[in-house]
């Protein structure tokens, strides 16, 4: 089921088109990555979906609610980590959480205090709950802001660069949390990031945008297929010898073979997993000693760089 459906979403600021005719769907429980360089329009897209900005054109439905008509309802069922942490620095961490809990209609005092404690403990901020947020480090603020976004257990979550101010350890904790929310609680998550590592590890679908326009949409592996004509397999042998080449070139599905000092590089249009067993069998039968077999999948980074540097909608 699609939780978020955007159709022709467009936002102009004067002459500048920040979001240009974007259409996409996000399924329930999916982690959807919004990728793009600075100024691509990621934050603006999230602001449109959170009903913080009114689109110039286009429509989006969040859980069936229209961003044109049901803004209050949409704000109720979404949690948002904004680009700036947006915390009240003169209030304590606890006071911040309390305010937002009540703003999101958690009025029962018991429920409220249990939820706040649970979140602050999870993010390691419980001991600092009575400190003014102004005294917090950037990373602590980021964590508190994520805790705030989760306070009302929203079924839909927008995270604008959630790991940008975090150290590697905290980044990993946030990634684990995102995975858990999506898998266990069926939370639908829209994640904007320019950290490809996050997108690669978390997202089932990724949309790359540039200057407001969509340049690619698909699963990370679909995207790698888009930019690479060939799949690559690297095989290390103890003693690679020249006659291996003709053996390999005869295998159906293998398109190119390169033999190096210790590594053989094989390119094929076919699926690597389909051809690998055949290749290995032929090498072993020819007396080759296989040390390792590595399918080389282009990283999302390669894909991203290639797509962002080029242009046009290939997806």
């Amino acid at each position: 089921m699609s939780m978020i459906v955007a159709h022709g979403l467009t936002k102009r600021f004067g002459d500048l088109t920040a979001v240009d005719n974007l259409s996409f769907e996000i399924d329930e429980g999916e982690v959807f990555g919004l990728l793009g360089p600075n100024g691509a329009g990621k934050t603006t897209t999230i602001r449109l979906l959170a009903c913080l900005l009114i689109p110039t054109k286009g429509e989006a439905e969040i859980a069936g609610y229209s961003i044109w008509r049901d803004q209050l309802k949409i704000r109720e069922i979404t949690g948002i980590l904004t680009e700036n942490p947006c915390l009240y620095e003169r209030l304590t961490a606890y006071e911040n959480m309390e305010f937002f809990a009540e703003a999101y209609n958690i009025t029962d005092p018991r429920e409220k205090s249990i939820r706040i404690r649970e979140l602050l403990e999870f993010f390691g901020l419980w001991d600092r709950r009575h400190d003014k947020v102004g005294k917090f480090s950037k990373g602590m603020k980021q964590k508190l802001a994520i805790a705030r976004a989760l306070v009302h257990r929203p079924p839909i979550l927008y995270l604008d660069e959630p790991t940008s101010d975090l150290d590697p350890e905290s980044s990993k904790a946030i990634r684990d949390l995102i995975r858990k929310l999506s898998e266990r609680e069926q939370c639908t998550i829209l994640l904007s990031t320019h950290r490809l590592e996050d997108a690669e590890k978390l997202c089932s679908k990724v949309m790359i945008i540039k200057e407001g326009r969509r340049i690619a949409l698909g699963s990370p592996s679909q995207l790698s297929m888009m930019v690479n004509e060939y799949n690559v397999l690297e095989i290390r042998l103890r003693h690679p010898h020249k006659k291996i080449r003709s053996i390999l070139e005869d295998i159906s599905g293998v398109d190119r073979v390169e033999i190096g000092e210790t590594v053989i590089r094989i390119e094929m249009k076919k699926d690597v997993e389909e051809v690998t067993p055949i290749i290995v069998r032929h090498i072993v039968e020819a007396g080759g000693e296989v040390l390792s077999v590595t399918p080389i999948r282009p990283s999302l980074e390669d894909v991203y760089l290639k797509l962002v540097k080029g242009d046009g909608d290939k997806a």
Partner: peptide, 14 residues
């Protein structure tokens, strides 16, 4: 100015 308004506007308060 303190850039806290965005989170406030995102809450279901009219």
């Amino acid at each position: 100015e303190r850039k806290t308004i965005e989170a406030l506007l995102a809450t279901p308060i009219s």
